[in-house]
Amino acid sequence: MSDWIHRIIAPSAIIISAGAIPCYATTYLTVGQAQKICFTNATQFIAADVTLTSEQRKAITKDSGVRVRLDTQKVWRVQNGDKFIGWFIQDEVLGKHEYIQWVLALNADGSVRQIEILDYRETYGYQVRDEKWRAQFYGKQHGAKLKLDDDIKNISGATLSSRHIADGVKRLLSFYELVLKK
């Protein structure tokens, strides 16, 4: 009967790779693909990036309770012919362990239409905040990392909280109210 439970003791003995696998990344959608998915009826996406002044950043932080980290926000006005049908906003959040590119699609009235994750990069440990440490993975985006991608993509074990995205939504809705809408 005890065969039903495999007790795996001292996992260091059976770790598959030689060392830790410090990083894995997944690209789900390109910006262009996400645009098509969020607005199937769109005919045009007009780039309308916004550079935030420090006053605007402070105002958004105050309104949303979430710190504004970047001073440029990538934004597209979405059109169906002559008709304005919504906003498409690209953003990134840096969580505790993960680095996420995502988009928020808003309807013309500013309500949330859709959220899609574009790219998800997960790193662990104290090194996460170390830019130099993180930089070593950027260079590998086109070569070695892709191979890792294929091999290590399905992970079970940690439930990663999506709270950082929820915070990002709050921040971008304040951005819409205080900056885009005007």
Binding site: T26, L29, I115, E116, I117, S162, R163
Partner: peptide, 9 residues
């Protein structure tokens, strides 16, 4: 595809 749902991804 990936979306934030059920408190996770």
């Amino acid at each position: 595809r990936c979306r934030p749902l059920l408190g996770t991804f």
